[in-house]
Amino acid sequence: MDYELLKDRVAMIAARIQEIGGEVQEVVIGEPALLEKIIQTEEQLGLKLPESFRKVLLEFSGDFSLRWFLPDDMEQPNEFSGIFCGTPHWNLERFPQLEQGKMEWIDNVFPNDKDEYDVVWHNTLAFCEVPNGDYLAFDMNTGNDASIVYLSHDDGEGHGYKIANNFIELLENWSRVAFVGCEDWQWLPFTTSSESGINADGDAAKRFRTWIGLDI
């Protein structure tokens, strides 16, 4: 992946949000993670991190966050009425804490791996906590370079949706829709099915970029 291009996209998104009167609360692109720290985290978790995520941590950043919000009075097309912010983030240091929080949901609410809803939570690795209590997670059933799945705790429409085939694909496509918010209702407009992932070249994504004024 072209990380300089990714940095440019982050800067373009932040600049455009400010141009239209929105608020950019945070832009953090930390240093790449040390291999020793990744190995230590893997030992704590008892598993190996997915290949493309490991690559991004080592080559790009171990601590990333972008927080932007649209102006409150901005008129929105109906199809994008649920989009109000962008909050992508990950932090290698917080992985054990995230996993503990996810496991508490499994133990207390979704313990039945034979249940169609519950099983989506099982054998996953959370990497991003959604403000509403949901998670973006790696589906560890999908091999060494795990796909990204949405874990909803309250019957969200996006529960179990595959958002991307791997982490690098997620960054590529999510960044091209301005890293819209992690809540499922914010990225669902850019999917066509539970398996499609975010389609950054689809008609909805093109209309969104035109509406918000981004050429990425």
Rank of each mutant, 00 (worst) to 15 (best):
E99P: 00
N165A: 03
T124Q: 09
D63F: 12
E59Q: 09
I148V: 10
L136D: 04
S147A: 15
I163M: 08
F190A: 01
D72F: 14
D203K: 11
V149E: 05
A33P: 04
N199D: 09
A200T: 07
R9P: 07
L45C: 11
Y3C: 11
H89V: 10
I216W: 10
L57D: 13
E169P: 10
T87A: 04
A33Y: 09
E59C: 02
P111W: 11
V119E: 12
E51S: 14
D184I: 05
A205N: 12
C182E: 12
E51I: 15
K206W: 07
I17F: 02
F179N: 08
T41V: 12
R94N: 15
S196A: 01
N78L: 15
F80R: 13
G143N: 03
D2V: 05
C182K: 02
N91C: 02
L151V: 02
D73R: 12
N141Y: 09
W105F: 12
H122R: 07
M140E: 13
D155N: 06
G46E: 14
E172P: 06
D155K: 03
E104T: 15
E43M: 11
G156N: 07
E23F: 03
E116Y: 15
I212N: 08
T192E: 04
T142P: 06
N123I: 15
A164Q: 04
G30M: 07
K48W: 12
E169Q: 14
P32M: 00
G30D: 06
T124R: 08
M12Y: 13
Q44Y: 14
G181V: 03
W121D: 11
N199E: 14
G30E: 12
K114A: 15
D63G: 03
P32W: 02
A146Q: 09
T87P: 00
E51W: 06
E4T: 10
I212W: 05
Q186A: 13
E19L: 10
D154N: 11
D201G: 02
Q25W: 01
F179K: 02
E31I: 09
W68M: 10
Q40E: 15
K162D: 08
W185H: 08
K37N: 13
P32N: 06
N132K: 05
D201S: 08
F179Y: 07
V120R: 07
A178P: 00
D118V: 07
F80Y: 10
I39A: 12
V10Q: 00
E116Q: 14
A204W: 00
G197R: 05
F127C: 11
D139H: 01
L49H: 01
E169Y: 09
V28I: 14
